[in-house]
Write a protein that binds this DNA or RNA. Structure first.
Lengths: 167, 167
DNA sequence: AAAATATACGATACTTAAGGTCGTAGATAG
DNA sequence: CTATCTACGACCTTAAGTATCGTATATTTT
């Protein structure tokens, strides 16, 4: 139900990478794609999107690339997702404010509601946004320290109660 | 990024409907579909799924139908989503624990991480699950009281800072 | 027996995401 | 000046997911 798309995921990887470079050093799309084994085209697309959002800036030409423009501490996950995945980022009642391409059923939850879960959905929406606003992108740029290792090294067992394919 | 699919949405509508019926009264799929203008086939499928999860029980035959089995207060949104949308419900790094049908990129975030955002993703995953565990389905069954009306009745303006297509 | 309902399985169309291709423009290195 | 590297932007193809529809069977009430 919660799913970051590739662009968002690659964006986080790229931001983390750039945040670890000193000063005004730029990073090319190629460098990021090669470093993390990502498809170049999508990486390039992602970086352009990041630039459009104002998170990073670009330098054209040979030896050009991208560099952070804002601190990752200034940007919340809520903001980031809205920019990267569009305003319909958070979801539930497929009918509320149906935008372009959104095929809702007959219910207009706003004022002429039949299904009646509209208000609860809006409420949930606000909670989710609040939750996401409490998370800053800098969390993803932190050192990838190996978490405290479990006593026994069993590749899968520790996760069984929480077997989650995606985050 | 957060998106409830139709089955989940219809499920919430159905659960709410049933929670408002007295005692052991049953509700047919037809009744729910007609009441809320939902496609019958999907509604029926949804109810069967709800039954499989143990949330509701069924009565076969003419005048049969479904009735709640658990209180909606006992079920959290995290549980509900896992049941309705599968264990890969919560999502982020498209590569972690890639299940069947999940096409991840080259990065195995668990131990041989290149992208390095794995740990942060897992951390986020836990936060999201915790968040969703704090929400009970009974919230969706509450009376659909019209929320406090804004002073001026402008169909769209009030939502502009938060224009969200989905919840 | 007939009607209403759940139950189960399958098929199809639509939508979206993911990835790729191509061409253009700008800047540096030589 | 020219070749090369890079960003930039439009378009296309394919794969996956999802909603929707269809059909048949079992079970109970009337």
């Amino acid at each position: 139900m919660i799913k970051l798309n590739r662009t968002t995921e690659y964006g986080l990887i790229a931001l983390r990478h750039m945040s670890r470079k000193s000063g005004g050093a730029v990073t090319s799309a190629r460098e990021i794609a090669d470093t993390y084994g990502l498809p170049f085209e999508i990486t390039a697309k992602t970086l352009q999107r990041l630039k459009d959002t104002g998170l990073i800036q670009s330098v054209q030409g040979a030896r050009g690339g991208y560099a952070l423009k804002k601190s990752l501490d200034e940007v919340t996950l809520a903001d980031f997702l809205r920019e990267m995945e569009g305003p319909q980022a958070v979801v539930a009642c497929a009918s509320i404010e149906s935008g372009p391409g959104v095929s809702g059923h007959a219910c207009d939850c706003e004022y002429d509601s039949k299904c009646q879960i509209g208000p609860a959905m809006k409420n949930l929406n606000n909670k989710v946004l609040q939750f996401l606003s409490g998370i800053r992108l800098s969390e993803f740029a932190a050192e990838a320290v190996p978490l405290v290792q479990l006593t026994s090294f069993e590749p899968k067992a520790a996760n069984s109660q929480n077997s989650v394919g995606h985050l």
